[in-house]
Design a binder for these strands. Structure first.
Length: 438
DNA sequence: TATAAGTTCGA
DNA sequence: CGAACTTAT
């Protein structure tokens, strides 16, 4: 058995916005926001070290957080991490007791009431394991998924033995779409069973409808370690390929970030380093409007307001708002990624940053740059009756049915469009032309 | 996990 | 004439 190493990342949440988070913080002061596999702590070569350094630096510097490390290892890299991140933001709680239950208990006691025990990585297959025959990592999702399936994984551990000990969020209520669903393994399993026996059958199309409840709502549980993906995978049937693929995407992006930790902040496709962004005062104001859900595009605004209200956003809408920020407002993708990480209850560095890169066209296996979402037609297609928009945009509650998507038929108190989509679409295509090398 | 513009085809 | 399909971006 590998010795447990416990790390977590602490960032400054605006706790006043989230009474449930506040209660959890009251219980233990800190929240375990980022948990690493202890194998990454072993001196096993530069790639692992780089992963550790860069993830932590990314989190600390880009997200305004604090790092807190507790461990029993004489791990030689800890001082280096401290040096990288800078004095004052790293607290190391050294504990030299032998590994085992006693040491776990001592560490836990030293760190407060949070039940933080970590076992194993939160992936079916540990990042870095699935490789091409020549040893190189996969850069395209579909072959990765095939190899990942072929690789296989252990059966899930029994409840209460493995996954339940992973991380605990006792007392933490996750403020997501389903109000009042609590944290913890038991709650995660109940959400899973509800989904498995219901919306999963219609997942292919149902997951794209933000006006309905067709997604699994498991993202926060997976991200916080309340449930292990192997538990879900073991429960899936041959017909559930789409949901299995969503889990595969999660593993794929973890693998990509493991191999290239710098891509948490930098373009995976370096050709995009030359891409022209808008970052001046006007762009900052548009970015602000986007953050607040005041762009004048109904689905975009509904999504951004759902994010602020619930710390969660429907996946289809995430794609729409991301496309809008990058391709209609021409803002760097990492601005949007950072905003998401600050607000999403399920925000995961690998999935978040690489899905943003996918939308921006600069990532692994990215969407072709010319795939530009039309925020109006996306709204009409996936929120056909306008129910989603009306739920989150009070100014539009008086507008009937699909009319909420008609920009020229919206009430005066609703913001005018910050930009003209057709024009900005062309601007984006022209800027892409400028960096193309074909 | 796209869109817009153009083309084909049948009612 | 609109739905379905094709194609360039």
């Amino acid at each position: 058995m590998t010795p447990p190493a416990i790390m977590w990342f602490r960032r400054d949440l605006r706790l006043s916005d989230h009474p449930a988070l506040l209660a959890a913080a009251d219980a233990g002061e800190v929240l375990p926001l980022f948990v690493l596999d202890d194998r990454l702590l072993k001196p096993a070569g530069e790639p692992r070290r780089r992963f550790l350094y860069d993830c932590l630096r990314a989190l600390d510097h880009d997200l305004g957080g604090r790092l807190h490390i507790a461990h029993g290892d004489p791990v030689d890299i800890v001082p280096k991490i401290a040096g990288k991140i800078g004095a004052g933001s790293v607290h190391v709680s050294a504990d030299t007791a032998p590994y085992g239950r006693e040491r776990d208990e001592r560490v836990q006691k030293a760190l407060g009431d949070i039940d933080f025990v970590r076992i194993g990585s939160p992936y079916a297959v540990t990042p870095g394991r699935v490789r091409k025959q020549d040893g190189e990592p996969y850069r395209v999702f579909t072959p990765f998924r095939r190899a990942w399936l072929d690789h296989g994984w252990r059966k899930p551990a029994k409840s209460g033995v493995d996954s339940a000990r992973w991380i605990s969020l006792k007392g933490l209520k996750i403020p997501a779409a389903k109000s009042d669903y609590p944290a913890g393994e038991q709650a995660a399993l109940e959400v899973w069973q509800d989904f498995r026996d219901g919306p999963l059958a219609d997942y292919d199309t149902g997951r794209d409808r933000p006006d309905r409840d067709g997604t699994s709502h498991l993202s926060a549980y997976l991200r916080w370690g309340c449930v292990h993906p192997r538990t879900l995978l073991a429960d899936l049937k041959p017909g559930n390929e789409t949901f299995r693929s969503e889990l595969a995407w999660r593993e794929f992006y973890a693998d990509v970030l493991w191999h290239q930790p710098n891509t948490a902040r930098e373009n995976y496709d370096r050709k995009f380093d030359r891409f022209k962004h808008d970052t001046g005062k006007a762009a900052q104001q548009r970015f602000q409007a986007w953050c607040e859900g005041k762009t004048g595009y109904p689905v975009v605004d509904a999504g951004m307001r759902q994010l602020l209200a619930e710390n969660w956003m429907h996946n289809r809408v995430r794609m729409i708002v991301a496309s809008f920020l990058v391709k209609d407002l021409h803002v760097p993708w990492w601005w949007g990624a950072r905003h998401f990480m600050r607000h999403l209850i399920d925000g995961d560095l690998a999935s978040n940053q690489h899905n943003w890169q996918w939308v921006a066209g600069c990532g692994t296996d990215a969407a072709p740059y010319f795939r530009i979402f039309n925020p109006i037609t996306q709204g009409e297609k996936f929120d056909p009756n306008g129910d989603y928009v009306r739920k989150y945009v009070p100014e539009l509650r008086g507008v009937q049915g699909k009319t909420v998507h008609k920009l020229d038929k919206l009430p005066e108190e609703y913001p005018a469009p910050v930009v003209d989509h057709a024009h900005e679409r062309q601007v984006s295509l022209d800027r892409y032309d400028a960096i193309r090398t074909t």
